[in-house]
């Protein structure tokens, strides 16, 4: 009987723009342990084999959103993706797609950081703020709850074929976060100017890759489809109704 494999090969992208002409894959042999996430493999490389490898990570419990990478072709949180699931290997670790690479596995997410404020991801309330809390039933919360679960990990942008072709597209996470506030019973905001613009929901061709990639069940594709309906109805009302009756 063949001996059980105790190591696995990780093929990791190495690239320093400006210094290297193109990305290359470097192979490392790391222990294959049942508890080890892909991130544990990278940490083993960094600590013991090669200190020059660069990547982001922090909470290692799937909530801070730092460690998104492309693992064997799919966008994943490297802290929540396990080496044994890729045995016998090799497992290929590349930077998230659709973003400029800063170095190795570190991508530049400043485009998202610029787009996020555009959807006004904060509560807009007209009228007086109550002394106590706004009342909101559990059913009312269920309306927006899943859209509030976004950890900004960028896996959906990496998976989105529209974002790949049209960098102006607001993108799945930003739109879902706009919808998160639109659907909150405490919110009276109007985000139509952004969400219903050419860069907003209408750019989406409903491929649904974003919802498949999302590690937190946010379903950005659903948020986008739902907002398309909202925007269409609002546009129709604009057309048909006098000003005062539009809300």
């Amino acid at each position: 009987m063949a001996r059980k494999r105790t190591t696995i090969t990780m093929e990791v992208t190495r690239f320093r723009p400006g210094e290297d002409s193109e990305p290359t894959l470097q192979s490392y042999e790391v222990p294959l342990r049942k508890e080890w996430a892909v991130l544990d493999g990278l940490n083993h490389i960094k600590d013991h084999l090669d200190g020059t490898l660069s990547y982001r990570w922090s909470c290692r419990m799937g909530i801070c959103g730092s460690c998104g990478m492309t693992v064997n072709g799919k966008p994943q949180l490297s802290c929540a993706t396990f080496l044994v699931d890729y045995a016998p290997g090799p497992v290929r670790v590349e930077p998230l797609r659709n973003f400029p690479v800063i170095r190795d596995l570190v991508v530049d997410i400043s485009d998202f950081m610029t787009k996020l404020p555009k959807v006004k991801p904060w509560l807009i309330h007209e009228g007086e703020t109550p002394e106590g809390e706004f009342l909101q039933t559990p059913q009312e919360m269920d309306e927006y709850k899943k859209y509030s679960m976004c950890i900004n990990c960028m896996l959906c942008y990496s998976a989105c074929p529209v974002y790949a072709l049209e960098p102006e597209f607001l993108g799945p996470a930003a739109i879902a976060l706009g919808q998160r506030y639109n659907l909150d019973s405490r919110d009276d905001g109007d985000r139509r100017d952004v969400l219903a613009s050419a860069e907003g929901v209408w750019a989406c061709t409903f491929v649904g890759e974003c919802s498949t990639a999302c590690p937190k069940g946010v379903d950005p594709a659903g948020a986008i489809q739902r907002y398309k309906l909202t925007a269409a109805v609002a546009a129709l009302k604009d057309f048909l109704l006098p000003r005062g009756a539009r809300r």
């Binding site: 904060w122 509560l123 309330h125 703020t129 106590g132 809390e133 706004f134 009342l135 909101q136 039933t137 559990p138 009312e140 919360m141 927006y144 709850k145 509030s148 506030y181 909150d184 405490r186 919110d187």
Partner: peptide, 19 residues
């Protein structure tokens, strides 16, 4: 904590809508 509620924090609720 109320201030955060007014900013939209999704605090878990009782069936009657209170915190």
């Amino acid at each position: 904590l109320l201030r955060l509620e007014h900013q939209g924090c999704p605090w878990s609720r009782r069936p009657d809508g209170h915190i």
